[in-house]
Write a protein that binds this DNA or RNA. Structure first.
Ligand SMILES: NC(=O)c1ccc[n+]([C@@H]2O[C@H](COP(=O)([O-])OP(=O)(O)OC[C@H]3O[C@@H](n4cnc5c(N)ncnc54)[C@H](O)[C@@H]3O)[C@@H](O)[C@H]2O)c1
Ligand SMILES: NC(=O)c1ccc[n+]([C@@H]2O[C@H](COP(=O)([O-])OP(=O)(O)OC[C@H]3O[C@@H](n4cnc5c(N)ncnc54)[C@H](O)[C@@H]3O)[C@@H](O)[C@H]2O)c1
Lengths: 211, 211
DNA sequence: GAGGTTTTGCGATTTTTTTCACAAAAAACT
DNA sequence: AGTTTTTTGTGAAAAAAATCGCAAAACCTC
């Protein structure tokens, strides 16, 4: 099994770039066009493809439509991915309202919250009491969850998710989660993202001054 | 200059973990305690510290307070970082409302939008017309920006930011940005994060079945 | 259809990152 | 004071990821 997260993220980027090229009327691409569009090197493109047994035509590059089919299949985009969110505060509201996920075959099917004021069954995306998470996830066979609860609640919520069949979590709370070994957690930490930026901006400005 | 993004992200994680340990009453840590709390290995902790010339005491570990001071200084947390946001839609609203940034010394000082309906000068965090971004950034010497505009507008907005002194951008729009070489862009792509999760969940379930 | 050109596919190489492993320092114990 | 125990700090080794480089295939031109 391939473990390189960056490589899979690049596949997503190729996919997005290919949709854009397609929309511009292109039918074929060469590895270097695609590389430019995705912001990587041509040999990275070819290497990644070779890792997944994707091949093009020497001298004629890759057929965009065919390529998209293969990438979409690798990325599990041949079926709609049902996702739930725990914690329906500010961040989750933005996620639930976001139209872009639908285009990508990602469907947030329900939110869960402990605050009764947030509950709403008649919504397009219902917000249900946290106690219903368990049954919902089991019955619908949901595999992917998003954690958007406060830091203090995240560990507990993750445990409930994993216990009831969730296999992958995107966690926005700024805390590490314990996960069973057949499960995955992807962390999105916006503070760290900004801190990181501050570090590199400072570091760059220092090196520039030396020159 | 150190280029390893992961290493800097780990420093942020150490910092968070140290605050938690501090709150629990700890005064000192050993590399392995900290490693556990931050979700890394003890040798990674020591190696990272050695890279930044941070040293502890053999047999007595590290003084938490002192360590925090050093990490905070490396991460630029000794002064408040002023940040602006372009695009004040759903996502930016969540960011603007988020209380957690303040605790981390990150202050979103203004939002900018093309939609007049979003403008509001009397808010705690004012939302101003996009045309004012230029002057605002220059006058206040802002170095960090967040892009939360639609994909189609992101390139243009980034260009304006960079032209007026922004050195680092966190970009939520699902598109690569052109950046001057003394500037940095950190990408946060939530679709890709979910896609990635789907890939690894599928991959793991396949390898498990083989066993 | 020979010769030239372009582009893929992938093994080999290089670079980067992580992990190991152990000497040296410091504390604790005897 | 010497011995044992514990933990750091960092070179060395290993592992992982990125990049290079080039043979081979496909196409084009004449
Ligand atoms: N909003 C941001 O921009 C932002 C930025 C960085 C990090 N985060 C992180 O994302 C998470 C969510 O942030 P937010 O701004 O949406 O917070 P929020 O306070 O707006 O929302 C949290 C929601 O979780 C609910 N909740 C609390 N405990 C719960 C539980 N045990 N089970 C289910 N629901 C529970 C609350 O009722 C609330 O609706 C937090 O961990 C925060 O640290 C948010
Ligand atoms: N909301 C999410 O959960 C989510 C998830 C993934 C990605 N994103 C990305 O984040 C970005 C923002 O998403 P959102 O949901 O907040 O969108 P949104 O439509 O709610 O907000 C976009 C805002 O940008 C403003 N805008 C448009 N053009 C502008 C310009 N040229 N200059 C300044 N402002 C401009 C609009 O008036 C609007 O207020 C998008 O690129 C989106 O693809 C959002």
């Amino acid at each position: 099994m391939l473990k390189n997260r960056n490589c899979i993220i690049r596949l997503s980027r190729y996919k997005n770039a290919l949709y854009r090229l397609n929309a511009l009327g292109f039918v074929r691409v060469f590895s270097d066009n695609l590389a430019d569009a995705a912001g990587v090197t041509a040999s990275a493109v070819r290497k990644d493809f070779s890792l997944f047994g994707i091949s093009g035509n020497k001298k004629a590059g890759y057929q965009i439509e065919e390529l998209l089919e293969k990438l979409n299949s690798i990325l599990g985009k041949d079926k709609v991915q049902k996702v739930i969110v725990a914690g329906c505060g500010n961040l989750a509201s933005a996620l639930i309202k976001y139209k872009g996920f639908e285009k990508e075959g990602i469907k947030i099917v329900a939110g869960f919250d402990i605050d009764p004021a947030k509950h709403n069954r008649s919504n397009n995306v219902p917000v249900l009491p946290l106690e219903e998470l368990k049954g919902f996830v089991r019955n619908q066979g949901i595999k992917i969850g998003i954690i958007a609860v406060p830091e203090a609640a995240a560990g507990q919520v993750a445990e409930t998710m994993f216990k009831n069949g969730i296999k992958g979590i995107v966690n926005f709370a700024p805390i590490r989660l314990k996960a069973p070994e057949d499960c995955v957690v992807n962390y999105v930490n916006l503070e760290h993202e900004l801190e990181n930026l501050v570090y590199f901006v400072n570091a760059l400005s220092k090196t520039k001054k030396k020159i």
